[in-house]
Amino acid sequence: MYSGLIKYLDNETELAGVLGHEIAHADRRHTSRQLQSQYGISVLLSLLLGENQNTLVDVASSLGQLKFSRDYETEADAYSVEYLNGTNYYACDGAAGFFIKAEKEGQSATPEFLSTHPNPGSRIQNIQTKADQLGCRNRSAASSDFTTLKSSL
């Protein structure tokens, strides 16, 4: 979390959504799982292609990891919705606000299959669909504290 992100967000519910997303990465042990996966794929490719760590191994290993990263991002988005639903205070699709803003600003220029993250449009739809399933989209939290925080930065 850094001040630039706080300045970028529009309200406290979006901040709670982004925090929930980041907490989900830690809670679901995505970093540990990513390192285990990356190390295992590199070793397997080295065995299949010989002892040389050449460009083919590096490229194949990197491309294989992109899918894992997108899956982890999607999982973190879903858990963010569940975490906010448990608050009974924030609209549980808070993280979608961040992606709506990013999409409007054209931050989805990279084709999804080459990116470590799903495109914002997919993320918005997935988050809002899960929020609809849980019936927790229409909550509104006061943002006066958030506004004060944002103006102090």
Rank of each mutant, 00 (worst) to 15 (best):
A91P: 08
N54G: 02
S61C: 05
R29K: 15
D77H: 07
Q53W: 15
Q36V: 10
A96V: 01
L44Y: 12
I41D: 14
D10I: 01
T74K: 03
Y8C: 01
F98A: 08
A109S: 13
S46R: 07
L35N: 13
V43Q: 12
Q34Y: 15
G86S: 10
K101Y: 00
G50Y: 10
C92H: 03
N54Q: 10
D58Q: 14
V81A: 03
Q53D: 14
D77S: 01
H25F: 04
S32P: 14
E73T: 00
S37Y: 14
T31K: 12
S42V: 11
T116K: 13
A26H: 11
I41T: 15
A91V: 02
V81L: 09
E22Y: 08
G94N: 02
Y8G: 08
T31N: 14
S69V: 11
R33V: 07
A76P: 03
G17N: 03
R70C: 00
L84Q: 04
L63Y: 07
N54V: 10
G86M: 03
E112S: 01
Q34V: 12
L114V: 05
A78V: 04
Y79H: 09
K104F: 13
D10W: 03
K7Y: 09
E73P: 04
Y90A: 05
Y72P: 10
N119M: 10
G97K: 05
I23Q: 02
L15Q: 08
Y83A: 11
P118T: 04
P118A: 07
Q53I: 14
S62L: 04
Y89I: 15
S115F: 04
A78C: 06
E103S: 13
G40D: 11
Y8E: 00
H21F: 09
E105K: 06
T55K: 15
Q65G: 15
T110F: 01
F98V: 10
F99N: 05
T110K: 09
L114H: 11
D93C: 07
G86K: 02
R70G: 02
F113D: 13
N88H: 15
S61M: 06
F113N: 13
T55G: 12
F99Q: 05
E12M: 10
L114N: 10
N85I: 13
R29Q: 14
L56V: 11
L84A: 09
A16M: 06
A109R: 06
A102M: 14
L49E: 00
A109V: 10
T55L: 12
T31L: 14
